[in-house]
Each structure stands twice: as structure tokens, then as C-alpha cells.
Design a protein around this nucleic acid. Structure first.
Lengths: 219, 219
DNA sequence: TGACATTTCAAACACTTGTTTTATACTGAT
DNA sequence: ATCAGTATAAAACAAGTGTTTGAAATGTCA
């Protein structure tokens, strides 16, 4: 039965990583057992400890690879968009960001998995400190700051980052909440397609950003 | 007929609920064992199954109580605020909402616990379907819609709800992300106090809402 | 008081967990 | 062919899981 997938030596390690990625994302760290993973990867339970040195190490390696991949996809997607227009508007930048941000999270294979990963990491973190901030957040801040400076009004750096937090918050909440608001019976509370929500976030946020640029008015 | 006259029997039940609330929130469902709970509640392991019929039932009961309490605190806080002003502005409403939304999540005892609860529920739900939407989301939609209609520009109902999603998304993301951006070394990426972020969200969102009301028209 | 239901508890049950051990194959170099 | 080094596998290990059992307390009411 174990025909073609049973070959290579280094391949076992890859199969474990692949299975772990899937199962950790679907079920979280605690609910995924080593035996779940090795069953999916069609190898022995001891293989995880042999190749990775423990369940926790495997988890870190799995998540690290996912993070790097996600970051690179987003950044290259935005850079490509921004190089297409000679004089992009704020709305253009925001839509490019929204798409670059969401696309990796919704496309079939690893999309929902990444979302679950993040949700699981928010509570009990099994990752080394600083990895998330330095290898993931900072590069994203870098490229979005560039885009904002180029297309938006002049902003204080901290304010600009708060604006980006506002947008990310909206996008994440939309993605997580949208399936939730799919009403089994009765009219939908909000539009059910993601595109409409993206348009909303773009319009909403463009106005928000411009309002944050206006000098503080005495009240 | 057991009952309330005697505190001995009912007290065990309460202690279990209290301990479960704390531990489930701190560690999540899977990582909290019945023995953890009964140790904290100083009772026998069998007590959980006797009083609640199982770990899952205990979890549901725990979360249900927390949700109802959170909802009521928020709604009464907003209604109080809105009754104080005869002609409240949109900004006033938004600030009232932001405070009502965040206050229960940051005040010492149960604040972080609630946040963890939500995060844990986002991934693997252990709750009966519909409870969250009908008993928690809908009442909040009701009161926020009232506030928006009273203080903001005329909005299509679906658009109004998307605007509220935008605000909730910002607030949740701020709350979860803020401790994350506390930079161990170097200058902070964003302001570290919640008040500044609330001010930002209010300003950002007021402009966003007004922009969503304007018909698509050259200006 | 005795009879009865409710509540508590220690112990056991059946099962899963991550990890380690021991043994067996396979590799490539000497 | 011998030898180290690597990789896989079956089995065992110790600890922890939710739940159940059966007996002892405890309270309630006739």
C-alpha cells in the first residue's frame, strides 16, 4: 500500500512538516497529537522526535515557514501593484494592501489554516519571543509605510502605524466574522461576499486616514 | 429538592464555575483539565460530572454566563452615556461605544479572561450554534444601530453594520495587538496607552462613517 | 428517630499523551 | 566485507485524560 510515498529519507521530514502544518492549523497545538501527525504523514511516531527533537520544536519550525512565506507573498504582491501606477491614489494603495493582505488567507489550500494559526497563537504562544515582531511585523510596516507616504497625506509616523492597525483590524475582523454572520435563516446582516467588504474598508479607511492628517483642532 | 437554603451543596457548584472561568480563560479548553479545576475549587474530580454532566457542559455554562454579563454591562453603559446628552455627536457616540466595548475587557479580574475566551472560541468552538449570534451579537447590533441612527448621517442598514464591524475590528485588534507592540528595546512603534488609541479610532471611524454616507458623487 | 434523597469523596477504569528505548534496515566510504 | 552513520520502526514507558463506581457523609422531612 505504501507505494510511492514511502521512498526517500529526507522526504519523511518534509511529509511531517506538511502534515503538521495542516493539522496544527486545523486543530491547534494542544488538540493535535504526534500520532495524528505521523498517521497523516505515514511514518512512525518516533520520527518527529528524531527529526525535530520534540513536538514543540516541530510546531515552531512549521509556523516559522508559514510566516515567512506569507510575508513574502504579501510584500511582493504590494510592490508589484505599486510599480504599475505612476501616480497611485490613496484608494489604490489601500485596495492593493487589502488584497495583498487577504489573498493568502483566503486562497484554498493554506488560507484558512493560516487564519487558524494566528488565532491559536494569539492566546497561548508557543513561539519564541520576537520572531513574530521582527521577522513578520516589521517588514510589513516598512512596505506599508512607504505606500502610505507615497499616496496619502503627510502623517506622523506613529499615527500612520495606528492607521495601518485600524485597517488590519478591520480586515482580520471581517475575515473571521464574515462566515459567522452568514445567517442560516432570515436576511443576511451584512453583504456575504468579501469584495463588497473590501470596498467598504477602502472607502472607510481612506476617509479615516485623511481625517487623521488634519491638524488637531481645538475643541 | 436540593436547594439554596443550604450553601454547602450549591457552593461547590459555584466554586467550580468560578475556577473553571479562570482556568478556561487562562489556558483554553483543551489545556485545562478537570483535575486542574477541581484542585482550584478544592473539591473532588467527580463533582464536575455530578453538577454539570461533563467537561463540555461545564464549559458551555461558564461561557454562557460570561457572555450574558459582558453584553449587559456594555449595553447598560452605552444607554447611560446616551441618556446624558440631549444632542450627542457622532464622536460622542463612538467614544461611548469604544469605552463600553473595551472596559469589560480590560478591567482587572475578568478582562483578559474574556479576551482569551473569545480568541479560543474563534478557532474550535465548543458552544452550541446560534448562542453567540442570537444572545450576544444581535442585542449589541440593536443598541449600536440606535446610536448610529441618532448621531450619524443616514446610512443603509447593511452599510451601518459594516461600519460597526469596522469599529469593532479596530478595537479588538488594538486590544490584542497593543501588548504585542510593546517594544522591549527601541522606541515604541505606536503609543502604548489605550486612551490614545481610542481617540484615534474615534476620529478615524467618524470620518469613515461620514464617507460611507455620502453618495458616490463628485466633490 | 428512621427513611430518603442529595452531595462528597477516594479509587479505579479505559484511554491518550509525548517521549524513549531497542532493534532493524539502509547508506556510502574504507 | 567491514564499519560508522543515518533513518525507520515496533514496543514500552510514565504521566495525564475524562468519566464512572460504590461507599461514605450530609441534609431533609415524616
Amino acid at each position: 500500500m505504501a507505494s510511492e510515498s514511502k521512498n526517500g529519507n529526507a522526504e519523511t521530514r518534509e511529509r511531517i512538516l506538511s502534515s503538521a502544518e495542516k493539522l496544527f492549523a486545523e486543530q491547534g497545538y494542544d488538540s493535535t497529537s504526534i500520532r495524528d501527525i505521523t498517521a497523516e504523514a505515514e511514518c512512525n511516531v518516533a520520527a518527529v522526535n528524531y527529526h525535530f527533537g520534540g513536538k514543540d520544536k516541530l510546531y515552531i519550525e512549521t509556523f516559522r515557514r508559514l510566516l515567512i512565506d506569507l510575508r513574502d507573498r504579501r510584500i511582493s504582491s504590494m510592490r508589484r501593484d505599486m510599480s504599475l501606477e505612476t501616480d497611485p491614489t490613496l484608494e489604490y494603495f489601500l485596495e492593493s494592501f487589502a488584497n495583498a493582505f487577504l489573498e493568502p488567507l483566503v486562497d484554498g489550500s493554506r488560507g484558512r489554516l493560516l487564519l487558524s494559526f494566528f488565532a491559536n497563537e494569539m492566546t497561548g504562544s508557543h513561539l519564541p519571543k520576537g520572531l513574530f515582531l521582527n521577522e513578520f511585523i516589521r517588514p510589513m510596516i516598512q512596505v506599508t509605510t512607504e505606500g502610505l507616504e507615497r499616496t496619502g497625506p503627510p502623517l506622523d509616523p506613529q499615527v500612520a502605524r495606528m492607521c495601518m492597525m485600524s485597517i488590519v483590524g478591520q480586515l482580520l475582523h471581517t475575515l473571521k466574522g464574515l462566515p459567522f454572520f452568514s445567517n442560516p435563516e432570515g436576511p443576511p446582516l451584512v453583504p456575504t461576499d468579501l469584495g463588497t467588504h473590501i470596498q467598504h474598508v477602502v472607502r472607510f479607511s481612506a476617509a479615516g486616514i485623511r481625517a487623521c492628517a488634519a491638524p488637531v483642532e481645538a475643541s
